[in-house]
Design a protein around this nucleic acid. Structure first.
Length: 494
RNA sequence: GCAGCCGUAGCUCAGUUGGUUAGAGCGCCAGAUUGUGGCUCUGGAGGUCCCCCGUUCGAUCCGGGGCGGCUGUACCA
């Protein structure tokens, strides 16, 4: 090995933006979240399935990257056979591929769930990462709004099981068919208006962000943001803007009122009326099951994805989320989904009705973390056996082995520092106890056991250094043969 | 992508009206304490002042370009 220059290391120790490292505390928090979500999904009768992180690019529904911007949105690359592959950007498109590939073998309707990391090559932001975890549940093969309603109810249950109190979240439901009806009513029907329809939908989606005034600007000429940057609007005329805004304001005091309002807005447009009927059916189910207050029909919910064909829904947190600097941050929805009857048809030709939703686990975890509800507690570390005499390592290792055999997390200090540093190490590992055996203890056939938690407690009242050193709080000698038993007793109290 | 703000130690920041060896607090390492986490004190390590070009006798500081970060906006299939 050549000499290593100390001053100039070759590589910079840094992460690309939008990617994060996670420590033990956070992993423990997220693992507990995943466990909770899984239990709810299982309870609802969904079964696990897993697909890989990489798919053929065209299976994900993304066109081949072009020369100028090869990774717009998705991370893509060519394999040895020069086939284009991509990292999945959600869990829905891969599920559609899976269902199409195994269609004959699956029970239908097919209820499945899966969790996994997805990747998006986009600019990150608060609660927005380039690699993040989603936890999806989908029902494939049922066209009934009852399937959509069930998923909304499951979403509400999941939030509560995750410790988010009723009232701190809301499940919002809308229907793409209603949106389409409104757009048709203002003369934006047909293929030739697809682009403008999208602009209008996106403007509506911004209602909670900019309010009716901002949306009005986006529907018309355009809007300037705080930095002075200008966003071009949809260019609708005054009458159309009024009609769209009336639609977004159709939300009434309760579900029945909202539905009555919506019916008036889309009267005479078959597709719109169909959408309202579906919403009405779902609302009936929510009320019957006692979810009336937790799931609301909200005409401003759009969802960005184009593939939705019917009911769409999203879960939002209703309490403010703050960043590290204490500023309130706009977080966006923590879960969302909808009906996508056309997605499996891309592979099979025939339409297969499907509906599903996705919890943004990483985003939700970030929100819970900022509330101190996730990963606040550092996991308890192992019992640390100190190395007092280098030539007694075998003896220390034997202690560790005994503890491990008894199912107690334990390790021998493997560094080269002195006792003080070893104590600091144990402290940093959040060890519950250390085991000390120097020559004195060894000759007496004993070990010294120090309870670090009790010791820290005792230290609070000691201010004098001499006293601190002399006190040696919270430690006791034990017979070597009783080591495991004594440690077990100590841990049981914790 | 577009716009605004920003870039000095591991972190948070000060400072240099352009001039010799660039500072603080916290953190880290060690000693005081020959075998004990904390406190205190003492000492130490740690910097291409983001990079490049230009102006200048001289640039961390001024100008231009780039890169990176944050925020907003767009996008979110």
């Amino acid at each position: 090995m050549s000499e290593t220059p100390k001053k100039k290391p070759g590589a910079l120790a840094r992460l690309p933006r939008g990617f994060v490292d996670r420590d033990a505390a956070e992993i423990a928090g997220v693992t507990a979240m995943l466990d909770t979500i899984r239990k709810v999904y299982e309870l609802y009768g969904f079964e696990a399935v897993e697909t890989p992180a990489i798919e053929f690019t065209d299976a994900l529904g993304k066109f081949l990257p072009d020369q100028d911007r090869p990774n717009e949105g998705v991370f893509s690359f060519q394999d040895d056979d020069e086939q284009w592959l991509s990292l999945r950007y959600d869990l829905t498109a891969p599920l559609a591929r899976y269902v199409a590939e195994h269609f004959d073998a699956l029970p239908k309707p097919y209820r499945s769930y899966r969790a996994g990391y997805v990747f998006r090559n986009e600019k990150p932001g608060p609660g927005r990462f380039r690699q993040f975890m989603q936890f999806d549940a989908d029902t494939v093969g049922s066209a009934s709004p009852a399937a959509d309603a069930e998923i909304c109810m499951m979403a509400a249950d999941t939030m509560e099981r995750l410790g988010i109190a009723r009232g701190d979240y809301v499940v919002k439901v809308n229907n793409r068919k209603v949106l389409d009806g409104v757009l048709e009513a203002i003369g934006l029907g047909g293929e030739e208006n697809a682009g403008r329809r999208l602009t209008v939908l996106r403007a509506i989606d911004k209602l909670d962000k900019f309010g009716p005034e901002g949306v009005k600007l986006l529907l018309g000429e355009g809007r300037k943001d705080e930095s002075g940057d200008f966003t071009k609007g949809a260019g609708l005329d005054e009458a159309s803007i009024t009609r769209v805004l009336a639609f977004t304001a159709a939300k009434g005091a309760n579900g029945a009122e909202t539905i009555t309002n919506l019916r008036a807005v889309v009267a005479g447009i078959p597709r719109g009326e169909e959408g309202v009927s579906e919403l009405a059916e779902m609302a009936t189910l929510f009320d019957a099951a006692g979810y009336g207050s937790r799931i609301v029909i909200d005409p401003s919910v759009v969802r960005g994805l184009e593939y939705y064909t019917g009911p769409v829904y999203e879960v939002e947190l209703t309490f403010p989320v703050t960043n590290e600097d204490g500023q309130v941050v706009r977080f966006g929805s923590v879960a969302g989904g909808g009906r996508y009857d056309g997605l499996v048809a891309r592979f099979r030709g025939e339409e297969v009705p499907a509906t599903g939703f996705s919890i943004g686990v990483s985003r939700l975890a970030a929100a819970l973390k900022s509330l101190g509800k996730l990963g606040a507690e550092k996991p308890v570390g192992p019992v640390v056996v100190l190395v007092m005499d280098r030539d007694q390592v075998a003896g220390y290792q034997a202690m560790v082995s005994e503890l491990r055999a008894a199912g107690i997390r334990a390790e021998m200090y493997l560094g080269s520092s002195g006792m003080k540093a070893q104590m600091k190490y144990a402290d940093r590992r959040n060890a519950p106890a250390v085991i000390i055996q120097g020559s004195n203890e060894r000759e007496a056939g004993e070990v010294m056991i120090k309870d670090l938690v009790a010791g820290a407690e005792a230290a609070k009242t000691i201010t004098d250094n001499a006293e601190w050193r002399a006190a040696r709080p919270a430690q006791f000698a034990a017979k070597r043969g009783e080591l495991v038993e004594k440690i077990r007793e100590l841990l049981a109290v914790r």
